[in-house]
Design a protein around this nucleic acid. Structure first.
Lengths: 191, 191
DNA sequence: GTCTATAAAGCGATAGAC
DNA sequence: GTCTATCGCTTTATAGAC
């Protein structure tokens, strides 16, 4: 690597992981400092709004990642076969991203707590985008009740994370995801 | 009412609601004090272990409620029709208890955060009991893959709470629950 | 841009009077 | 059993040197 200037963009994923592991309140400045390797002053230089701005930046970053990698492809499917392919890819991406339930969904976590009030738009927007994109793909795939099924699929993913963490068993996430695939009209085998 | 002696049992449900609304860390002693109407000294008299003992008591109380009202009936079903009836009742109880997603599941909330480490047994035990009881009823009802379906149903409930809160729309919980009913082999109409 | 020092407030927990 | 006063620690945020 030529050089590594500390940029705001580079530090956001690190902050994301800290928020995922410790929660919003639990992620103290001291922990964020240690994880990023930056001093207090540097963090406040990049994020004058403090923790709240850090979390907002993280949520925006995650939202952009899903938009680009998952939601846009779902919307882009022109016909039924490619829609089914897109939905199948979504499950693969989701399984990889959440590491079979070992990694928490920050938006889902925030939705359960007081953080929802603070980051209302980011949390709601993320799930609206997800449900809308999936519903559009399900409709293209000629599935009945696309919106209802999209809600059920996204719920299963979120609940699968919670349950697999509670049981300390990633297979619970896999099972939940399999059920969601079935709801989305995918056969266990392939697209 | 003849008199109202402040008992430990009477204060636990109040604490539960505070933990649900503010989370474990967000539920400060000041808030718990105000909600219960008790002074610091009284709270520490009932719960010498402080916040941790309060949360443990709350989790135990919730666990006992579900055990008595939901899990035991599921296990008790002697034949397929009564098993289906018990499963149907479970969904009604769950919908009422979580107020169509307006009320958070404390165990599910704790599972996503650091609290999981602190209340590991209570959180894991709660979900193990739930999945086991539902799987037993599904088996009695002659449903295939009872354990897998039980995991999917419980995941849907947990995810439905998160999604309905994120969207600020209780109908998302209802939709998630309808999907779960279908996974459990129940027709939308009745038992 | 990065750092340390420090301010100001809130936290959980304890002590001891009543 | 209930209360208030207080300890000691951690928190976020700021100020200012470099």
């Amino acid at each position: 690597m030529a050089k590594s200037p500390t940029t705001r963009d580079a530090v956001v994923p690190v902050l994301a992981e800290v928020f995922r592991e410790h929660g919003y309140e639990g992620a103290s400045m001291a922990i964020l400092q240690e994880a990023t390797g930056l001093g207090r002053g540097s963090l406040y230089h990049f994020f004058p709004g403090g923790k709240e701005e850090m979390a907002a930046a993280v949520l925006a970053d995650i939202g952009a990642w899903f938009r680009e990698g998952v939601f846009v492809p779902l919307h882009a499917a022109p016909d039924a076969p490619s829609a089914r392919q897109g939905i199948s890819s979504m499950f693969d991406e989701v399984d990889a991203y959440f590491r079979s339930g070992r990694r928490v969904c920050l938006q889902g976590m925030f939705a359960l707590g007081r953080e929802r009030d603070l980051f209302d738009d980011a949390v709601r927007g993320y799930f609206i985008e997800w449900v809308d994109a999936l519903a559009a793909a399900l409709q293209t795939a000629n599935t009945d009740d696309p919106t209802g099924r999209a809600v059920q699929v996204v719920s299963s993913v979120q609940g699968g994370i919670a349950l697999s963490r509670a049981l300390n068993d990633p297979s619970a996430f896999t099972t939940a995801l399999d059920g969601a695939r079935s709801v989305a009209g995918l056969t266990p085998g392939g697209v």
